[in-house]
């Protein structure tokens, strides 16, 4: 499956919203920071994702990031090369 950048962001947002019910979600395309480096060969995109969700309560950062990766599913195997993640609960943001 080949996505345009816009379609990929839309698909990622939809998956994150469906499984994490975030109260806030921002997805920025970071790909231009990484264009051309050897590790980015293959064309996967980089995104910076900030998520505020109650689903993270009581979880370690590793566990939170795993939740995000599980939600993103097969997008992590090809279309997306890497995510820079910030995962907070509403209480932590307050």
């Amino acid at each position: 499956m080949v996505y345009t950048a816009e379609a990929l962001i839309a698909e990622l947002r939809q998956r994150l919203e469906a499984s994490l019910a975030p109260v806030r979600l921002t997805v920025e395309d970071d790909s231009h920071h990484h264009a051309g480096h050897a590790g980015a060969r293959g064309g996967g995109r980089h995104f910076r994702v900030r998520i505020v969700s109650a689903a993270f309560a009581g979880k370690s950062t590793v566990a939170r990031h795993r939740q995000v990766y599980v939600a993103a599913g097969d997008l992590m195997r090809g279309p997306i090369h890497a995510l820079a993640l910030t995962t907070h609960t509403p209480e932590e943001e307050a």
Binding site: H65, R66, Y69, M76
Partner: peptide, 18 residues
């Protein structure tokens, strides 16, 4: 864990860059 880099300390997976 779907991305690189991956850091391990004393045999345990720690995480990636963030």
């Amino acid at each position: 864990w779907p991305t690189l880099p991956q850091l391990y300390v004393n045999g345990e997976f720690v995480g990636g860059c963030d």
